[in-house]
Amino acid sequence: MEHIAVWVAAFLTLGIVSFLYKDNPWYKLSESIFVGISAGYWFVVLFWDNVHGKFWTGVFPPEEYDAAGNVITKDPDWMLWIGALLGILMLARLVPKFGWISRWPLAFIVGSTAGLYLINYFSSNMMRQVQGTIMPLFGMWQTDPATGEVMFQAFSTYDVVGNLVILIGTFTGLVYFFFSKEHRGVFGATAKVGIFFLMITFGASFGYTVMSRMSLLIGRVDFLFGTWLGLIK
C-alpha cells in the first residue's frame, strides 16, 4: 500500500510540474484531482468541526461519564441557535427572491469582526509598534546594581546604525504618505528617501517570498529523489 501511495504522489507531483513545459492533459488531471480532493476534504472538516462538533454537540450534549462511571450532565447551549439561524439565513442567497435576507448575517459578521479587530490592531499593530519605534538612539542611562552608580551605557555601532535606519526610514516613509502638501523641495526630497526605504522593504519581502517558494520546490525534490527514488541520503 505504501508503494502505491508513493507512486501516486510522485505521479501527481510530476503532473503538476509538467505545466512548466506546457499545458497538457497530465497536468489537467492532476489539478482536477487536487481541486476535487481539497473541496471534499474541507467540506468534511468544516461539517464535522463546526456543524457537528460545535453546534450539534453544543445543543444536544452527548452523555459523558466520569472516572467512577457516573453520568455527567451538561446543559444545552441555546445561544448556538442564533449562530445556526444566521447561517441558515446566509443560504437565502440561493433563492434570488429572498437573496436580500443574506445581507443580515453578512452585516452581523462584518460589524462584529470590525469591532473586534479594531481593538486588536489598535493595541498590537499600532500602539505597541509606535512604542517600539520610540527608543534611545545612542545609549541609555543605567544604574549599576552593584554600586548603585548611574552611568551611560553606549550602544554598539551596529545597534546605533540600526536605530538611525529605523528613525530615518520611519520619518521619511511617513512623509511619503503625507499627501496634503505637494512633494517638492526639501519635502519632496525627504519623500523620495522614503520611497527608497519602501522599495528596499518590498525587495526584502520579495526575496523572502522567493525563498519560501524555493523551499516548497526543495520539499518536493526531496520527496521525488529521496522518498520515491531513494537517491538522496
Binding site: Y121, S124, N125, T201
Partner: peptide, 30 residues
C-alpha cells in the same frame, strides 16, 4: 501576538514561513 501576548502576557516565540517572516520582525523589535 494580538490576543495571547498583548492581552494575557504570554511569553512567546515563533517560527514562520519566509513569506510571513518580514511582517513578524516588527513584533520582535517591539
Amino acid at each position: 501576538v494580538q490576543v495571547a501576548v498583548d492581552r494575557y502576557g504570554l511569553w512567546m516565540g515563533a517560527g514562520n514561513t519566509a513569506v510571513q517572516a518580514p511582517m513578524m520582525y516588527a513584533y520582535v523589535n517591539a
